[in-house]
Amino acid sequence: MKKILGILGLLIVVCVVTASLSDSFLSAYNVENVLRRSALFGILSIGVAFVIITGGIDLSLGSVVCLVGCGLPWLLTVHHWPLGIALPVVLTVAMGIGLAHGLLITKLRIQPFIVTLCGLLLYRGIARGFTGDQTVGFGSEFKGIRMLATGKIPFLPGFELPAPVVFLAVVAVVAAVFLNRTIFGRYLLALGRNPQAATYSGIPTERMTVLAYVISSGLAGVGGVFFVLDVNSAQPVDFGNFYELYAIAAAVLGGCSLRGGEGSVVGVLVGATLMQVLRNMITLVTTRNNVEFAIIGAVILIGVIADELARRFAARRRTARAMQSVPQAGAQV
């Protein structure tokens, strides 16, 4: 929990700074927009958090977003599939991708970095291939389903809650319950810390790892659907570009350790929001959008350094306390 307080503090500082530098930051329009973006990225970040908790990584999810985001309008408008078939198909493909990643990683023992890096190249290439690099979109049709991403729910006077926020809330609650209240969540946390000990305790480590990759790719697929419903059209060349890095950064900022075994859903949500507020700040406050990556990179680095320093400080204090309470350490080997 202390970990989340730090990142929450950082989020508040960034918000206050941005609000003082820009009048439009707190406008209802802008807040709704930032919340919508945060919700969309939050879905991806929660997914990748499960993989990071197992000690793995998923670099492919931006390309899964692209594959699904292009595939859905392509099936609907070019091939005129009914929505009731096209939507389950793209989501099944996304989960199938996760299944394939998980099996390659657990059965063939290929490193997650390599498997998902190849995925990153592969799925974007496939999406560009079947669309012929042409922009695909819904045009003026499918208004109903697009409400899922573009809709708003009256919340406070003068302020409406973007629909994806509600969806994210549902995903987050389910994810948090899964991680903290089910035996499977405990299995993931245990095998992320020490896969050997988990195996020796009879935990089906391989199956759990596969499940994490299915969750990651599956939520990336859901995210892809929402992203394309939100913006209405997708360019295969850059749709979802770098989204995996935003998602991983959000998870790490939110307290997931790339060493595995650590992470909370709330932290990931705060991390995802922080990323979007930062991007928003850059757009509102600076006139130079091109430094966006530099600023985001710097803030993440500072956050991670601060976290590491805090961890060392805590460890040193713990050692000091332990030394005081035990006068002589005895012969422990």
Binding site: I183, A190, R193, A197, A198
Partner: peptide
């Protein structure tokens, strides 16, 4: 034998979680 960063409780229950589960819940 141990997940060193986890607590005593979580380590002791690790091999019996599936036996004591309630439909998947701890």
């Amino acid at each position: 034998g141990l997940v060193l960063e986890m607590g005593v409780r979580e380590n002791i229950s690790l091999a019996t979680l599936h036996r004591d589960q309630r439909r998947g819940f701890l």
